[in-house]
């Protein structure tokens, strides 16, 4: 469960990126976070990844108060959270396989575990045939699938997707959404910030709309409810 309790965030003490946000996301939920640029979506994600600290309020993830996590413990906290971005963020000098294995090397998995798990996950996202390709040799959709595979190897309880389809055409975007949905169905909580109206409207999931740092609507089976 993720809880924002009266969270405010200000980078410069003048303007507020988030204002008094109260939001609860249950385990296993799928939530779209929408809103115009500068509404506070990125700030929300940065707070969840403990890249920044809220100026006010408390943030709990799986009943842990994030303000109580020491800097040294942040990497271990982040291992429980998978994150994908609009620009994929793959290592350009490593193959698809190596990019995924890399996430396991970091947590010091054994070679045996890596050899067993990486191919299985590449199979799950449909990339078995591209295992030895480098990121610049594959399409954007395939790159995003690699990024998703990378988050999956460590079995995160939460998946944060920051505009995961922003660089993709509509058909590829739908394929990516299928995989994200698949991950969701495995029990992973999914928080996805997006500008993709058609995806939000067609998926019939909870939609939290931000504007100027405030939650302006929060609907089950919601729709993309503002004009860009």
């Amino acid at each position: 469960m993720i809880q924002f309790k009266n969270v405010s965030m200000s980078y410069d003490n003048v303007t507020h990126a988030l204002r008094n946000v109260n939001l609860t996301i249950n385990s296993g939920e799928f939530v779209f976070v929408v809103g115009p640029s500068g509404a506070g979506k990125s700030t929300l994600i940065k707070l969840l990844l403990k890249e920044i600290e809220p100026t006010e309020g408390k943030l709990y993830v799986n009943n842990v108060d994030l303000s109580g996590i020491k800097p040294k413990e942040i990497p271990f906290y982040r291992r429980g959270i998978g994150v994908v971005f609009q620009d994929f963020r793959l290592l350009p000098d490593r193959t698809v396989y190596e990019n995924v294995a890399f996430a396991m090397e970091i947590v010091e998995a054994t070679r045996k575990e890596i050899r067993r798990q990486v191919p299985a996950i590449l199979g799950m996202v449909g990339l078995s045939s591209k295992a030895n390709s480098y990121p610049n040799q594959i399409s954007g959709g395939e790159q995003q699938r690699t990024a998703l595979a990378r988050t999956l190897v460590n079995n995160p309880s939460i998946l944060i997707a920051d505009e995961p389809t922003g660089n993709l055409d509509i058909r590829t975007a739908r394929e990516i959404m299928k995989i994200i949905n698949l991950i969701h169905r495995r029990g992973t909580t999914v928080i996805m910030a997006t500008h993709a109206r058609d995806i939000v409207d067609s998926m019939q999931k909870r939609v939290v709309t931000f504007d100027k740092g405030c939650i302006v609507s929060d609907e089950e089976k919601g729709e993309y409810s503002f004009e860009d």
Binding site: R89, L90, I106, N154
Partner: peptide
Amino acid sequence: RREINIMKYIGATDWY
């Protein structure tokens, strides 16, 4: 720096 940034998101420790 890109690689370092990615490593941080995946949960690499500072010493790693």
